[in-house]
């Protein structure tokens, strides 16, 4: 499809002889939420990190918002890469908030240092974003004083402050205590409802079922299958998908029901 906001074609990568990604093809339409699931080591995080150049894919093409990040295995460099990244927000498993800056400082540092926005305007935008993630009252707090869930919500606000066209989430709830997962997923759900294009690597099958437009199942560096959650979770084509889901769902619900 031509109106895809994100186009991956034949993306491949290896790490010291080991194949991590094999010929990945993926189209993401504007406002779509794509959830990538799969066993650990399947290459899903690597794929996500390739989409903003934190990892270098050596093969294929990656295009986001008509900007080519990867052209036949050659990645953008320097200024072009920095500029590209402004449009692609990233949320990490381990939050990676800047510990020497306040919550407000974390959210404003991007617009101020990269886009040259003045302090007043950056603060206004940051407070609006912090209100959105329910943390306006923590604007002056230092990251070390926040809970994991709060940290991740600040990290989402920080990424949004650059007004990205696409948001990448790399296991955003995996480092959280179980009772804090909900507040982060709620923010992500709200974001999806506003029409943000999102690529989410997660083990939260409930979130995938509820929010995803497309669920992508990965294993051993390949896309096993992709489809709407109704299809993937209820009646997958591939045996590999079935066995993975079974393993995950029995772990998540000790009573045995899915």
């Amino acid at each position: 499809m031509n109106q895809a906001i994100m186009k991956l074609r034949g993306v491949g990568k290896s790490f010291s002889g080991n194949r991590i990604l094999h010929g990945i093809n993926l189209d993401v339409l504007p406002s779509q939420v794509i959830v990538i699931i799969g066993p650990s080591g399947s290459g899903k995080s690597t794929l996500l990190r390739c989409c903003n150049g934190l990892e270098v894919a050596e093969e294929g093409n990656i295009e986001i918002c008509t900007q080519k990040l990867l052209t036949d295995g050659r990645m953008l460099v320097d200024h072009d890469l920095n500029h590209f990244r402004e449009q692609v927000g990233m949320v990490f498993q381990s939050f990676n908030l800047f510990p020497h800056l306040s919550v407000l400082g974390n959210v404003t540092v991007g617009p101020r240092k990269i886009l040259g926005v003045d302090k007043h305007e950056a603060d206004t935008l940051a407070l609006a974003l912090l209100t959105k993630v329910g943390l306006a009252h923590k604007a002056d707090a230092m990251p070390a004083t926040l809970s994991g869930g709060q940290k991740q919500r600040v990290a989402i606000a920080r990424a949004l402050a650059m007004k990205p066209k696409v948001m990448l989430f790399d296991e955003p709830t995996s480092a959280l205590d179980p009772e804090l997962v909900g507040e982060v997923l709620q923010v992500m759900k709200a974001l999806a409802n506003e029409g943000m294009t999102m690529l989410v690597v997660t083990h939260e099958m409930g979130f995938a079922q509820e929010v995803a437009d497309v669920v992508v199942v990965m294993d051993q560096g390949r896309i096993v299958e992709a489809g709407p959650p109704e299809k993937i979770f209820v009646n997958p084509n591939e045996e590999r998908t079935r066995s993975f889901l079974q393993a995950v769902l029995t772990r998540n619900t000790p009573t045995g029901g899915a």
């Binding site: 320097d78 990490f92 020497h100 240092k113």
Partner: peptide, 27 residues
């Protein structure tokens, strides 16, 4: 300084130099 700090700074779109000055060096 944790690798994730540089990654977070670069993923916002910061140049390596800006990330070093504003994020890594202060820590």
């Amino acid at each position: 300084v944790e690798k994730g700090q540089m990654e977070a700074a670069r993923s916002l779109g910061m140049s390596a130099g800006t990330a070093m000055r504003t994020i890594i060096l202060p820590q």
